[in-house]
Design a protein around this nucleic acid. Structure first.
Lengths: 203, 203
DNA sequence: TGACAATGTTACCGATCGGTACGTACGATT
DNA sequence: AATCGTACGTACCGATCGGTAACATTGTCA
C-alpha cells in the first residue's frame, strides 16, 4: 500500500487544525493587549486568563513580540472589515461609505473606556523601528493612507493627496483624543468637521 | 550677631538650590521617557545615564510614577512655551499665532525620529485612570482644548467649539501620525488643511 | 575644631519579567 | 498490545523590575 494521507489530516499544522490552546491564547491576548497595552501585559497573565500554561503559548508563538505582531495582524483584519462595511450600504458612493465609517467611529470614540486604534497604540508603545509589532502597524498605516487617497479621488477632490492626509489626521486625532476625553470629547464634532473638510476639498 | 542669611543661600531646598543629582535625574528622565516611553525605561537606566544612583532618585521623587508625573509637568511647561511663542511675533492676531505653531509642528512632525506629544503618549501607555502621569496629561488636554476655543473665538469662528475640536483632532492626529510615517507623512499637508478648516469655519 | 544635616554610595530586597527543560496524558497507527 | 507523535502541564531558569536599609562623604554652622 502506498502512503495515504487523509484530507482531514492537516498538512500545515498551524493553518486550521491549530491546537485549541493557541486559539484561546490568541483571543485572550487580543483582548488584554488592546485594553491594557502590550507592554502592560505579561505572558503569565495571558495564559492564566486563557486557562492554559506558558509552554502552550511558546509552542504556537515564538515569543511575546511574535504574539503581539499576531494580535496586530488580527486587529488589522478586523479594522478593514469595519472600515469597508459601508461599501455594501453605499455602493458607488465613496463619500457615503467613508462617512458611514466616520459616523460609527465618532460614536465609539465618545464612549468612556474607548482605547483608540490598537495599531496606533502599538507604534506609541514601541518607538524603535525594530519591533515586529511596530512593523505590522506601520505597513498598515501606509495601506490606510493609500486607501484614503483612493476614496478622496473617487469623491472628486481637487487634491486627493491633501484631502486624504486631512482625513488621516482627523481619524488619528480621534483615535488618540478619544482616550483622553470622556464622553464629550472632540470626536463629537468629527462628523461636522469631516464634512467641512471634504466640501472645502471639492471646490 | 543676629542670624544672617546670604542671598546666594537657597531658602527653599527643593526650589532652586536643589540637589544636583535631582536635576540630572530630571533631565535624563525627561529625555529617556520622551524618546523611549515611560514603561520602556527602568529607573536603573535613568540613574546610570544620569551618572548617579537609585537612592538619589528616591530621595527626590517618591516613586517612578511620581517621576513620570514630574516629567509630564515639565513637558507641559515646555509645550505652552512653544505653543504661545507666536503671541510675540503675531500680537492681536489669533490666527497668525496659531498658524505659527502649526507651521512649526508640521516641520517637526515630518522629521524622522519624531516622537509626538509626550502627554498624549503617556495616555496611551497608561489606559487606567489611576496613574498620576495620566492625570497630568488629561488635565493638560482639557486646558489645551479650552485654549483652542479661545483662539477659535478670537478668529471669529461661527462655532468656536467645533473649530476648536477640529483643530485639536488635526493636532493630535499630527502627533500620532508623525511617529508612523517618515519624512513624507500626512503632516506635510497640515498647514493647508488647517487653513481650509479655519476658512470654512468663518464663513 | 566639632556637631549636624544633607547628599551620595554600596549592596541588597522580594516580585515579576520573558522563556524553557522535562515529564505525562491521550488518540491514532500498526 | 506495543508504539509513536501530538498537546499540555509542573517546575524552574537567569535577568530585570521598582524600591530600600545602612553606611560614607560633604558642606555649613557654631
Amino acid at each position: 500500500m502506498p502512503i495515504k494521507r487523509f484530507p482531514s489530516e492537516p498538512i500545515e499544522p498551524s493553518a486550521e487544525g491549530k491546537p485549541k490552546a493557541a486559539e484561546r491564547i490568541r483571543r485572550t491576548a487580543r483582548e488584554l493587549f488592546y485594553r491594557e497595552g502590550i507592554r502592560a501585559i505579561g505572558v503569565e497573565e495571558i495564559v492564566t486568563k486563557a486557562g492554559v500554561t506558558k509552554p502552550s503559548l511558546y509552542r504556537s508563538y515564538a515569543s511575546k513580540d511574535d504574539l503581539a505582531a499576531e494580535y496586530l495582524r488580527d486587529y488589522e483584519v478586523a479594522f478593514w472589515k469595519v472600515f469597508e462595511a459601508g461599501a455594501e450600504t453605499h455602493p458607488d458612493d465613496a463619500r457615503g461609505q467613508l462617512m458611514s465609517y466616520i459616523e460609527g467611529l465618532a460614536h465609539r470614540a465618545t464612549q468612556s473606556g474607548y482605547r483608540g486604534c490598537g495599531l496606533t497604540n502599538a507604534v506609541v508603545e514601541y518607538p524603535g523601528d525594530d519591533h515586529p509589532a511596530r512593523k505590522v502597524a506601520e505597513e498598515h498605516k501606509h495601506k490606510f493612507r493609500e486607501r484614503l487617497v483612493e476614496l478622496s479621488t473617487a469623491m472628486g477632490a481637487k487634491e486627493p493627496n491633501v484631502l486624504a492626509d486631512g482625513l488621516l489626521l482627523l481619524l488619528e486625532g480621534t483615535y488618540a483624543s478619544g482616550q483622553m476625553f470622556g464622553s464629550h470629547g472632540p470626536a463629537e464634532s468629527l462628523v461636522k468637521i469631516a464634512n467641512q473638510l471634504i466640501d472645502a476639498s471639492l471646490r
